[in-house]
């Protein structure tokens, strides 16, 4: 449920699908009748380089064409970014950060020195490796995200994913991604 503007910043590395995940979430939200915007910080894209993507979801028209510096939600697609990029920069004290990591949420909290924001952790790479056969964590992270913040129902995302990708992906890839979303939705933890 999007009852006011929600700003989400995604941190990933080139190739992990931060921009695709942002767009997928935005499109699925738009399908539910809200306004949505998704864009990435573009530059000389290189596989493995730190990248940022932005999503705004709102019940009203969005009139902001600039990066998100004070996000409500931060999603980190790569655990190695925790020590490479200040992922929590500008995160609201009542905000939420969701990290793809094998570490516990408590350890992430300590590592980042966070007090206010809610911290969640999920081993999205492991889940993706098992479900899809490649450790691309973006879809799993969307599954986890809609668990910790009820922006949409899991079913909304799964339905939209099928609609958007069924003609582009093999049945195996499609099922793999859907399972990754379901599993991460179930396994994300705040401890």
């Amino acid at each position: 449920m999007v009852d006011k503007m929600v700003e989400i910043r995604w941190h990933g590395r080139g190739g992990q699908g931060a921009a695709t995940a942002g767009r997928l979430l935005a499109e699925a939200t738009l399908e539910r009748g809200f306004y949505a915007q998704a864009f990435a910080e573009f530059g000389p894209e290189r596989r493995g380089a730190p990248v940022q993507a932005y999503v705004r979801l709102s019940p009203k028209v969005i009139r902001a064409y600039y990066g998100i510096t004070n996000p409500d939600i931060v999603v980190v697609l790569d655990p190695t970014l925790l020590s490479a990029v200040n992922v929590a920069q500008g995160l609201a004290a009542n905000g939420t950060i969701l990290v793809n990591t094998r570490l516990s949420a408590q350890l992430v909290r300590e590592k980042l020195g966070l007090e206010g924001p809610e911290v969640f952790a999920v081993d999205a790479s492991g889940i993706a490796q098992q479900c899809i056969g490649v450790a691309i964590p973006n879809t799993a992270m969307i599954g986890a995200l809609v668990k910790v913040k009820k922006l949409l129902e899991l079913e909304d995302i799964l339905d939209y994913y099928c609609e958007a990708f069924s003609s582009r992906y093999s049945q195996r890839m499609l099922e793999g991604n859907l399972n990754a979303m379901r599993r991460a939705h179930g396994e994300v933890r705040s401890q």
Partner: peptide, 12 residues
């Protein structure tokens, strides 16, 4: 149309 800012931003 503004490059990247609009050209590469998905919106309604």
């Amino acid at each position: 149309v503004d490059g990247f800012i609009v050209s590469h931003a998905a919106e309604s």
